[in-house]
Design a protein around this nucleic acid. Sequence first.
DNA 1: ATGAACTTGTTAATTGATTAACAAAAAATA
DNA 2: TATTTTTTGTTAATCAATTAACAAGTTCAT
Lengths: 206, 206
Amino acid sequence: MAKLPPKTVERISQYRRVLAKYQTLSEPFIFSHDLASLLHLNPVQVRRDLMLLGTTGNYRNGYKVTELLKSIDETLTIPKSTQATIIGMGRLGESLLKHIGSSPVCPVMINSTFDINPKRINTTIRGIPCYDMTHAPEIIKEQKIKIAILTLYTEDIQAIIDILIDAGIEGFINYMAGPIKIPKGIYLKEYDIRTTLEEMSYNIHN
Amino acid sequence: MAKLPPKTVERISQYRRVLAKYQTLSEPFIFSHDLASLLHLNPVQVRRDLMLLGTTGNYRNGYKVTELLKSIDETLTIPKSTQATIIGMGRLGESLLKHIGSSPVCPVMINSTFDINPKRINTTIRGIPCYDMTHAPEIIKEQKIKIAILTLYTEDIQAIIDILIDAGIEGFINYMAGPIKIPKGIYLKEYDIRTTLEEMSYNIHN
DNA sequence: ATGAACTTGTTAATTGATTAACAAAAAATA
DNA sequence: TATTTTTTGTTAATCAATTAACAAGTTCAT
């Protein structure tokens, strides 16, 4: 299928979670305006996204939940889940790990995490081990890990990033490491809450 | 001044942190292409943003750091900082609080947090107290708190949100509470990492 | 003093995302 | 049977964001 627009992919991921909930509630159908209002979107936008997905609804009942879910799962590359990891298993890392692991089946899975703090190395959380950063290259290659979530702040973060890229990481989600340098072709999403807070503050006051 | 485009505001917040670092390094000037490459942006975009900000650079040295910072600070409403709070002082709440508080002066400040867990109520972190959720309305009104960061997952989150809005909260940043209902005029930013992970996974595979 | 090398500031062009508009299908109602 | 209601699917129009293009100012080298 043709490459979907980034914003559509973002929304599809959100649809997926709403639909999963619908399924557990044994709701067999959903209208575009239901999906829209739950996620504060425009119904037209929802239908447009689903059209791009290649799914089709029903004039009377809306969209069939199981069908939609199947289509979304295929688009988001299940069953071949992408492997991700968390760099830094402090408070933030731990809470993210638990949150991500809360969905039973997921397009993105975490099976290993890393830290430099001896107290955390070789511990496990929900059965997922935390390894010494020095072993990251081999484990990342072996498990084909593609995404790294950075939850730590250290002066030598850049050296860590370079090692991770060399080991095969293709995308970073950066919570608090500050500005980092990455070559072209590597994805990066800045996730610093301070930006969001300041943006929202501006909106409220203007 | 005219209202700035949302994306420009977002970037300005990032410029601010880079500039603050430049200032501590006693670098008096910065070029648009420096700012751009540090944040993976286009230099033209940076100049456009700064133009909208109303600042002006110098043909030889670029932009004066102190001047730029002053202008950004004014735009992001310093010295009248916006008050924010964190709802749920678990691992995530604690790490966010410490991260946000790491900047000495900020357009957004946190002076109170809330929780429903008796173990956390009346503790303090970095001098910032955690209050019982039941006291939220009075404290939010008193301290004119406008933004709430939701770091918890509970079935009755909607009731909490309604109370917070009633107390004067105008913006929410939602980490993991799932879909929530808010009236028009209230700002909401979804911050669920699972969406970002799935989006990035899609990009890597397509 | 002249030209080369940079950089800013701004308008125009392009690209991307959202919203509006409406035909078509199906069922419910009169 | 005809009409109303509801919802999908899709094209067209609008709006927002990014990027391209380039004039103008400043310094440096020759």
